[in-house]
Write a protein that binds this DNA or RNA. Structure first.
Lengths: 237, 237
DNA sequence: TTAATAGTGTCTTTTAGACACTATGGG
DNA sequence: CCCATAGTGTCTAAAAGACACTATTAA
């Protein structure tokens, strides 16, 4: 049989296949806390429980899995987050009551203000303190997904400046350090933190300053691709 | 409607869903080269091309995606590799001619001798030099998957001793260093390499020695969980 | 001037790089 | 004894930790 003939006769639906979803762990930083976006489920299964934003691949619209997660997050927040990274794919017979299922999970970061107004208008979507969310009973295995995203973000905070994507486009170094400290869970040496960022030339000084009751701090913006940079040495663990 | 009623009425096959597969990039080290396990496809689609070992989730047998990849690799090699790690999930409308598809890919490592005899008996399964495989036209997007696995392994070689799983259970430090050098693609400082492994106490001295034309080298085995250990500082990049 | 926060100088510590040295076995 | 390979000593270099110091603003 030729390949053409094979493909003509091939019917995907003939084979039983796990249920496939895409979920996102969207973090932000606001008022000293790391927060995660949760949705209160209005449909079965797991109706009424809080869950990570997620959904199905739309074979018509989506050209990639990243398209899917971006589409889902835009639905919930009205904006596209500046940082998205695939986290892990979870699969098993029991994680969803509908049967053997697989979810491709993503970690994303966004500035709180970028989607605040939109989220405030919707009742079943909300930012929740990560510490609190981790203790809650979330839908499906979303607690496990959140935990893994949290751990990965903690690692990234030790060897990259990816956490900067949880801040607005311009930010000060003390602000960025605070985000890292919240994620890592312990204070960092100011000098070490600043030295490595300066040496790697990851930020652009906007020339502006912002005052918070003391000496005004310089406002920076990320240089292109700075999220990809990894320091060769971790901060103290 | 109650959740029970919802679940009774739910039919997975009613919704179009991407084709789901699991693929493995199984590396080994043999005679100075990094090798990857490839299969010559005997069925459509992509019949006749070389591909990574892969297959479908078996909803009856598999309790997790890792079960799936282990089952697939056991079919091809007769043994279960000592190191398996999820790599990345690829998805899109064009990567498989049968339609929108998703593959969850894994990286695995095994000693060459552990499955040599079995592989030699099968005609369409073979170890191939990674450098050569990367230049070949593989089935589906397997070239891209291989490339990504190769990159991840290179990174791991800089901050872990994961490459040790490509060697037999006992090995010498010069052997391990050679594996790292092949993966990284450049020579390493003997002293630096040994010092960090000793300091982190990752290996157990078996007391045995092995001679290769000069002073005999001590034989080590990995300590439990040594594959999870990450050095805080990378080797030179 | 003081309080508060931003930012720097500089010494110490840690860990990798470089490379020469010693050690151990086989012919 | 010589060759080959294994393994060590030790100085240098790079980058983080510690912490005190200076700088800049508002009240």
């Amino acid at each position: 049989m030729s390949e053409e003939k094979y493909l003509q006769n091939y019917k995907k639906t003939l084979f039983e296949s796990p249920l496939l979803t895409v979920d996102a762990v969207l973090f932000t930083y606001h008022q000293g806390d790391l927060k995660v976006l949760l949705i209160e489920r209005s449909n079965h299964p797991e109706k009424g429980k809080w869950a990570l934003p997620g959904g199905f691949v739309d074979e018509k619209k989506d050209r990639s899995l990243e398209d899917t997660v971006i589409r889902i997050l835009k639905q919930k927040t009205s904006v596209e987050p500046p940082y998205i990274e695939q986290l892990y794919t979870f699969g098993g017979p029991d994680r969803d009551k509908r049967g053997w299922s697989v979810t491709i999970s993503y970690t994303a970061l966004i500035a709180h203000q970028a989607c605040r107004s939109h989220i405030e208008t919707v009742s079943n979507v909300d930012w929740m303190n990560v510490a609190r969310a981790e203790k809650m009973e979330l839908a499906f295995d979303h607690q496990q997904i959140l935990y893994r995203a949290r751990e990965r973000l903690r690692q990234k905070a030790l060897y990259s400046i990816v956490p900067a994507y949880a801040l607005p486009e311009t930010f000060t170094l003390p602000e960025l350090q605070r985000v890292h400290e919240v994620i890592i869970g312990k204070p960092l040496q100011k000098k070490s933190f600043r030295r490595r960022i300066e040496q790697a030339n990851l930020l652009i000084d906007t020339g502006e300053k912002r005052s918070e009751g003391g000496r005004p701090a310089a406002l920076y913006r990320m240089r292109e691709k700075s999220g990809d940079y990894t320091f060769v040495r971790n901060l103290e663990q």
